[in-house]
């Protein structure tokens, strides 16, 4: 299996505060990798370093074979990023948002048109292409944000809390979409506070105060900590780490 993201002691400090603390991780091509962790554990900060948006303080990381220290522009062309509060333009239509992002990624007009058709089909948004983004229900905004992240057909996609606030049904159909995206051979990083979604990942990493305190497939973590759900694994790990701190 080819490695698509590799970090070694990756660290980020803000002043004296350490937000990400010596994280070492390998993620493979085609994996759906879940990040769990309490608020402020460092998930978004870690993702921002891997997307080339934020410089690390120390440590190493390669994304799609490029180095976060010197090759962040090359990385940006090979990753898609859906941020925690998806940054869509509310007063553009769904279709205009895609065209706009196509411009940012430097795609040609004909490429944009071609990708738009494929992606509207992929995320099931055709009927809403001409609607103002602000009028779309949250579940559709989230699909549109995913389409924007996939526009330049990147091999690696980072989704930061794509399902927060989304109802149970829309969450499940979004996960079907995540699977379909993985089947295209893409690597996906997903953060979530819904513990049932952790079960849908190939592997999960649990963060606590900047450290990666557990990594593994959900089934293995449940066996290892002798719990029947990921919710229980999460709470047990969180409590023991709080006590240790």
């Amino acid at each position: 299996m080819n490695i698509s993201v590799q970090t070694r002691n990756l660290t980020r400090r803000f002043g004296r505060f350490t937000a990400v603390d010596r994280v070492t991780l390998d993620v493979y091509e085609g994996e759906i990798f879940g990040f769990l962790g309490a608020n402020g554990a460092g998930k978004t900060t870690l993702i921002r370093m891997l997307t080339g948006l934020l410089k690390p303080t120390e440590g190493e990381a390669q994304v799609a074979g490029f180095d976060v220290w010197g090759q962040s522009e090359a990385i940006k062309r090979r990753i898609g990023y859906m941020s925690q509060r998806f940054s869509l333009y509310e007063d553009l239509t769904a279709e205009e948002n895609l065209t706009f992002y196509g411009g940012i990624y430097g795609l040609r007009r004909d490429q944009i048109e071609q990708r738009k058709a494929i992606l509207f089909e992929h995320v099931g948004l055709q009927p809403f292409a001409g609607q103002m983004t602000r009028d779309l229900p949250l579940g559709f905004k989230q699909r549109l944000a995913l389409a924007c992240a996939l526009l330049h057909d990147p091999p690696i996609v980072f989704l930061d809390e794509p399902t927060s606030g989304v109802d149970p049904k829309a969450r499940r159909s979004f996960w079907n979409l995540i699977y379909q995206t993985a089947q295209l051979g893409k690597t996906l990083f997903v953060t979530t506070h819904f513990m049932d979604e952790a079960e849908y990942c190939h592997r999960v990493g649990i963060m606590h105060m900047g450290r990666m305190i557990a990594v593994g497939p959900p089934g293995q973590l449940k066996r290892q900590y002798d719990k029947s759900t990921m919710q229980e694994v999460f709470i047990a790990l969180h409590q023991s780490s709080e006590e240790a701190a």
């Binding site: 309490a38 608020n39 925690q84 927060s164 606030g165 506070h193 513990m195 999460f234 709470i235």
Partner: peptide, 12 residues
């Protein structure tokens, strides 16, 4: 209105 949007399981 959706007070626990994005809040982690323990804090919820």
């Amino acid at each position: 209105d959706e007070p626990t949007f994005g809040v982690d399981p323990v804090s919820r």
